[in-house]
């Protein structure tokens, strides 16, 4: 088990290194000159050359890459560990930019995940148990509609109705959880619902098909033959198996969202990683883009690892070799 875990952590590090190399190379071959961006609009060509030398951009790519990676692992001169370089826009360390915004994205992702998991699974199970009924058809039509509507559209409708007309909720303005828990929740409610409406719909459909398949399994008949109450049959014998595939997609979805929900954050003006990504792309702020990419890759690979570990806890047939 420990050996397995060690191997997997090494594999995660390997994947991250590869992603880092690919992303780094892409930025290297891009026509934008980082030195021009870093120096500013009024720089002369001599100044730009100086900046280029200072930033190490005149060195070969593998040396630059080695410097970047060792900076992440151990820090560099004047740039504390973990060093992801400096933003071209405001010369702040990329790591600080990321950590400042992390709380927003994590709050958004975790809250929405809790919401969509609960709602999605409940709808899916209810639909599966009454397959073909009016309830099933209504719920599935609803989820199809909900999954088809883009996030920015849902966001706009919710903003218009709940904030503008009904004045039921404030316009989202992020408050840290530690300072103002109630404000944190009320301000994040709209973004949560927006994100969750999309994911809950997909989870409901996935849960439904998985549950229908499970309830047709012979071991469900065995459970009924024991004289168990249908409630026990559904929860203990049915849902335990049916939700296994949900765990997989949940890990990946949550991992992806932790590194920022770009559109949702942008629409609601939440100062999270997604917003940072959006700005970085428009300003060609390569160190920030690189940092965000690595962060996202980190969350997804780690989520994947966690899913595999959880899987073994759920399904005893999965054993570590």
């Amino acid at each position: 088990m420990i050996l397995y875990l060690g191997k997997r952590v090494l594999a995660v590090a390997g994947v991250l290194l590869v992603i880092c190399a690919v992303t780094f190379t892409i930025f290297y071959v891009l026509p934008t000159d980082p030195a021009v961006h870093a120096c500013g609009k009024t720089c002369s060509s001599e100044q730009i050359a100086l900046v280029r030398q200072e930033m190490g951009l005149d060195r070969p790519i593998h040396e630059q890459f080695a410097a970047y990676v060792s900076g992440i692992a151990a820090g560099r001169d004047g740039c504390a560990f973990p060093c992801f370089g400096y933003s071209y826009q405001n010369s702040l360390p990329v790591w600080d930019l990321l950590t400042d915004r992390m709380a927003v994205s994590v709050s958004l992702a975790l809250g929405a995940a809790l919401l969509w998991l609960t709602v999605g699974v409940l709808i899916g199970v209810a639909s599966a148990l009454r397959k073909g009924s009016a309830l099933d058809r209504t719920l599935m039509a609803g989820t199809l509609a909900s999954a088809s509507v883009p996030v920015y559209f849902t966001a706009m409708i919710l903003l218009l109705v709940l904030v503008q007309y009904l004045e039921f909720l404030p316009y989202p303005d992020y408050r840290p959880l530690t300072e103002d828990p109630v404000g944190w929740a009320t301000n994040l409610l709209l973004p949560w619902v927006t994100l969750a409406s999309l994911y809950a719909a997909m989870y409901a459909r996935q849960t439904r098909s998985s549950m229908i398949e499970t309830m047709g399994q012979p071991y469900i008949r065995t459970a009924r033959a024991k004289g168990l109450h249908e409630r026990t049959v559904v929860t203990k014998h049915g849902m335990r198996s049916a939700l296994t595939p949900i765990v997989t997609i949940f890990g990946m979805d949550l991992g992806g969202l932790l590194a920022g929900a770009v559109i949702t954050e942008h629409v609601f003006g939440l100062p999270g990683i997604g917003q940072l990504t959006y700005d970085a792309i428009f300003k060609a702020d390569q160190p920030v883009m690189l940092g965000v990419t690595l962060l996202a890759a980190f969350f997804i690979t780690v989520a994947n690892l966690v899913v595999d570990l959880v899987y073994a806890g759920i399904d005893p047939r999965v054993r570590y070799a």
């Binding site: 012979p218 071991y219 008949r221 004289g227 759920i314 399904d315 005893p316």
Partner: peptide
């Protein structure tokens, strides 16, 4: 249904064709 549940598994039992898929894997 509750009367049938009380009899099933206690006074009448059943075994099935494929024991692997008839047992819960978890």
């Amino acid at each position: 249904p509750s009367r049938l549940r009380a009899l099933r598994g206690s006074r009448m039992s059943m075994i099935f064709q494929d024991p692997l898929s008839s047992l819960h894997p978890y």
